[in-house]
Every structure is written in structure tokens, then in C-alpha cells.
């Protein structure tokens, strides 16, 4: 197990080193996101050639802009000053500095002022425990797999029970929450659609368009 872990770390290190040479900065998940945008947009730009002229205009324009901006952002460290400024530097009309002026620093209460900096942007946050998002994401994927195999009605309590176990929830509360989740799923099953009880092993079929 340790050997596998060691090999994985070594491969990750090599990829990161190579990426650093190409990008002139340590690769992060942002670069993965940009590569994903670039790959999808390139596929869609090329694929648009198969559509009728009128139907191809919009995908071609949007995919073209996505390709150009993804490349600019990926290789921002190669760009000359003014273009780099456009690509990489924040420039907001509604930035906190513009709104609050210097009053913020003078209110004599540093803690809320710091928090306000975070909140004014509204899209910035700290992660105290990186395992939290990773485990939640993985459990969602497992929930999806179970949905496809046994149906969402039965996958739901399993997902909640696993989450409660991971969150080290008190036993009584964990069981209550699991039962509640099944009740909600059952309400969907009986009131909205019975299809949520069907998975790959229980007669699932492709939907009719």
C-alpha cells in the first residue's frame, strides 16, 4: 500500500514539475479546470462544422471565445504587460475598496472588517478541512452509482448513513436522519415518480425523447 502511495506521489510530483516548466507556475486545479474548458470548447468548435450554417453560428462563436480565453489564462505568464493585466488582474466596479472607501479601516473593529472583505466579494472562502469537500464529492459519486444500479429510493438512505458515519454523528441522530431521508425518498416515489425505485438491475431503460 505504501509503495503504491509512494509511486502515486512520485508521478504527481513529475507531472507538477513538468507543468511548472510549461506554465511558469505550479499547476493547480485551476489549470485542470482551464484544460477542461479548452478541451470541451475545441471539441464543440470542431463539431459545429457538422451542423447547418444557422445552427452552427452560436456554438462556433461561444466555443471560439472560450478557446481563446482558456489559452490566454493558461499561458498568462508568457503575456506582455497590458494583455496580462486584462487576463490576470482583478478589475471590478463594485470592489469593496470602491464601495467602502477607507472607512472600513477606521472603524476600530478589525475582525468584522476582515470578514467584510471576504463577504463583499462573496465568492471567496477558506477550507478548514480539505477532506470535507473530497469525501462529500466521493459520496455523491457513490450515490450516483447506487442510483444507477439499485435505484434512488434505496440509494438515498445508504448515502445518508455513510455520510453520518463519516461525520461521526451520534448513533440515534444518524439513524433518525437515515430514516428521515428514506421517508423523503418514499414521498417522492409515491407522490411524484415511481421511477426513482428503478436502477440498472431493476428494468431501467433509456428515456424516450
Amino acid at each position: 500500500m505504501d509503495q503504491i502511495k509512494g509511486a502515486a506521489v512520485s508521478v504527481q510530483q513529475s507531472v507538477a514539475d513538468a507543468g511548472e516548466i510549461v506554465l511558469r507556475e505550479r499547476p493547480t486545479m485551476e489549470h485542470v479546470l482551464l484544460v477542461l474548458f479548452l478541451a470541451a470548447a475545441t471539441y464543440m468548435y470542431l463539431g459545429a462544422s457538422e451542423f447547418a450554417a444557422a445552427a452552427a453560428v452560436f456554438p462556433r462563436v461561444t466555443a471560439g471565445v472560450t478557446i481563446v480565453l482558456s489559452i490566454l489564462l493558461l499561458f498568462r505568464n508568457y503575456l506582455p504587460g497590458p494583455i496580462r493585466s486584462f487576463v490576470a488582474e482583478p478589475m471590478q466596479l463594485g470592489s469593496k475598496e470602491a464601495i467602502m472607501g477607507e472607512d472600513e479601516d477606521d472603524d476600530g473593529d478589525d475582525e468584522p472588517a476582515e470578514e467584510s472583505t471576504q463577504q463583499a466579494g462573496a465568492y471567496t472562502y477558506d477550507i478548514d478541512d480539505p477532506r470535507g469537500p473530497a469525501v462529500t464529492g466521493l459520496l455523491c459519486v457513490l450515490y450516483m452509482v447506487l442510483t444507477f444500479t439499485i435505484g434512488m429510493l434505496y440509494a438515498t438512505p445508504i448515502f445518508v448513513a455513510l455520510y453520518a458515519y463519516w461525520a461521526k454523528m451520534e448513533k440515534f441522530r444518524a439513524i433518525s436522519l437515515t430514516i428521515l431521508s428514506f421517508v423523503i425518498a418514499y414521498a417522492f416515489y409515491s407522490l411524484i415518480t415511481s421511477d426513482i425505485a428503478i436502477g440498472f438491475y431493476t428494468e431501467w431503460r433509456l428515456p424516450v425523447p
Binding site: V65, T66, F86, V87, L93, G94, Y123
Partner: peptide, 16 residues
């Protein structure tokens, strides 16, 4: 331009 981040990132998000 109103939200946080660079203009290029904002346009990329919207166009995507």
C-alpha cells in the same frame, strides 16, 4: 466587471 476576479475569467465563465 462587477463580480470578483479578472475580467477575462468573468467572460470565460459567462461564455462557457
Amino acid at each position: 466587471v462587477v463580480t470578483r476576479g479578472s475580467v477575462a475569467k468573468g467572460i470565460l465563465a459567462g461564455v462557457t
